[in-house]
Design a protein around this nucleic acid. Structure first.
Lengths: 196, 196
DNA sequence: CGGCGAAGTGGACACGGTGTCCATATAATC
DNA sequence: GATTATATGGACACCGTGTCCACTTCGCCG
């Protein structure tokens, strides 16, 4: 092997592909974009495209990667309530709020790409899962493993998209409802309930 | 028009299609079954199949219909805690429990058929939604519209399937966790929390 | 600077599924 | 039993996917 690193043209094409895919996803909607479209828009052949990204999901994943990593960093080492230090209920609410922002900003990317089962198989999902699970454990809840997925399920792109588009909810409303959920499950008090 | 009702052969073929589809879905898994397969197994032509069911989802929907209707009946007029009479938190927990049973019994049907966005467009979803929303309203929660989807999201077939298969959870565990969720959100007390 | 090997490229190809269409067959009415 | 609307079923074209391989380009080394 003479070239241990990525070749210059390969890097150039990778950038082209990602740029073109981002543009197409944003304008036409992810599910309506075919591999052909992306290859043509990027000015590369089909073979080149498939070499790196076997399907649409992996392209969207690459596009989302940087944004998700930033949030992950904040969860691990950022300031409270997102980062360590705050009580679990508040951290969960902050996490929900941050995820709502992420979904709102990149809905077009994430929709139809991370959809269905493939969502669970991404590294990002594993991270969110571990984070929420640690919050549940810290709060002393029984059987945190069984509560993680129900708490993460509202963040599925399809659910968020349905609430926003079909139900006409605002990001504020959604984040607020999720904060209530977090308080109800993790906080001792009935956080989401009206003071009675 | 001479035949205002469904013709005899049409009814017969409808039954054949549903029976064949149920068999195929159960053995091969819904996503792996093509329209061709169903038509051939049912002994009808493609045109006949497409006439009634434009896609797999509508077939699965027809198959699930009766089971869902039974549960809907119970929710409306059955005995507490599933039917009217019990406090909202207990009714929601009972609903979760019944849905877990439904998912467990018909996972093969529902998986890959009601998947993704199409789930929200079924009449059944609208019913579950209205039910949960009424429970939220009865409990006096603010903005029930924003809480409905998060509470229904854990029942998405993909989520349930992931918990059962990949995570190795039992139906009991899942139902129990959801009961805790119901208690935390709707019940004043921390139902899912350990007594402190 | 020229050639060499390996990685990268791109388009042609075959496959499979979907959805449509229409000539034919069949059931229900008269 | 004739008639007419409806149902049937298979043939057809279309589209997207994923693979494959002959060719090109890159990077190194003599």
């Amino acid at each position: 092997m003479l070239c241990p690193v990525e070749r210059a043209d390969a890097a150039r094409n990778r950038a082209r592909i990602l740029e073109a895919a981002a543009r197409l996803f944003a304008t036409a909607g992810a599910p309506n974009v075919t591999m052909d479209d992306i290859a043509r828009a990027a000015g590369v052949g089909r073979g080149t495209l498939y070499r790196r990204y076997p399907d649409r999901a992996s392209i969207a994943l690459a596009l989302l990667d940087e944004h998700e990593r930033a949030l992950q960093e904040e969860l691990l080492r950022g300031a409270p309530p997102l980062g360590p230090g705050a009580p679990p209920a508040e951290r969960l609410a902050a996490f929900y709020s941050a995820m709502v922002r992420l979904l709102e900003d990149h809905a077009h990317l994430v929709l139809g790409a991370e959809t269905g089962r493939s969502r669970f198989e991404t590294g990002a999902y594993g991270f969110w899962r571990a984070h929420v699970r640690s919050l549940l454990t810290a709060a002393g809840l029984p059987d945190p493993d069984a509560l993680v997925e129900p708490l993460l399920a509202p963040l599925a792109p399809e659910v968020y998209g349905f609430q926003r588009t079909d139900r006409g909810l605002t990001p504020r409303q959604i984040a607020s409802a999720l904060a209530g959920l977090a308080a109800g499950v993790l906080g001792g008090n009935g956080g989401g309930r009206p003071p009675s």
